[in-house]
């Protein structure tokens, strides 16, 4: 292999700055998208468990729609197509005046996509609760809404902390797709450093290590949260 190693390039300006700025954008996309994914995903997941058949079907349709189209295609539809479909004034505003359109689009697309996955976790969390435990809440006179608020949701969310963690890590990794519409996140910056310096090995290694470190930190943090909030007696508790 014929290759000129130069690890120092990673610590030279402007390349170090590029990497850090890339990391920052990766986190900004991931965290903002997660907020959307968590809120929308929870709502859709809960709606999939309500008695009303029409509501359940609509929620299921959301999940199927967003799960069965590649994220890249969704991203392009949000970026190139949706502004055309909006009412004229709003469409114009999105195209002309909306600040940082690439970032906003990436966040919305990633959030809406991941919401479908979060919804499935929330639904399965709610549905693992036995029928008689649900009955027990109703039997002491809780309304169905109260039963969701005080019994079904608190138990479900604590069960699904581990799968939600992996959904967050997925969103963190998927934020790299934002580069296709011009967000200079971590992967894009590594690619850019390769293009400028031909030190691809060093640049991609730096990005890989940064992704690994963040993943590790998230996993450790969530393990801590999982242990602290775990319902005594549930699977894995000690």
């Amino acid at each position: 292999m014929d290759y000129n190693w130069n690890w120092a390039v990673l610590f030279q300006e402007p390349y170090l700055g590029w990497l850090l700025s890339g990391l920052q954008w990766t986190l900004l996309v991931a965290i903002a998208a997660w907020v959307i994914a968590f809120v929308v995903g929870s709502a859709v997941g809960i709606l999939r468990t309500v008695p009303n058949r029409l509501v359940r079907t609509l929620a299921a349709a959301y999940v199927e729609l967003f799960r069965n189209i590649p994220l890249l295609v969704q991203l392009f539809v949000w970026y190139f197509v949706v502004p055309e479909l909006l009412p004229e004034d709003l469409g114009l505003w999105v195209k002309r005046d909306m600040p940082n359109p690439e970032y906003v689009t990436a966040v919305v697309a990633l959030g809406a996509y991941t919401a479908a996955r979060v919804a499935e976790q929330v639904r399965s969390g709610i549905q693992t609760i036995g029928k008689d435990l649900v009955n027990a809440g109703l039997a002491i006179g809780l309304t169905p809404l109260q039963n969701y608020l005080y019994i079904r949701l608190p138990i479900s969310y604590r069960i699904i902390v581990p799968p939600l963690t992996s959904e967050f890590l997925t969103i963190f990794k998927n934020s790299s797709l934002a580069l296709t519409i011009g967000v200079l996140e971590l992967t894009a910056q590594a690619r850019q450093i390769e293009n400028y310096t031909f030190q691809g090995f060093e640049a991609f290694t730096a990005a890989t290590v940064l992704y690994l470190v963040i993943t590790l930190l998230v996993v450790l943090l969530m393990r801590l949260i999982d242990q602290k909030t775990r319902i005594p007696g549930s699977v894995g508790a000690n």
Binding site: L169, K173, N174, S175, S176, L177, L179, T187, A190, R191, E194, F204, A207, T208, Y211, L212, T215, L216
Partner: peptide, 9 residues
């Protein structure tokens, strides 16, 4: 732990 796009690159 790393994005598929990075692996492709």
């Amino acid at each position: 732990s790393i994005p598929l796009i990075l692996v492709i690159f």
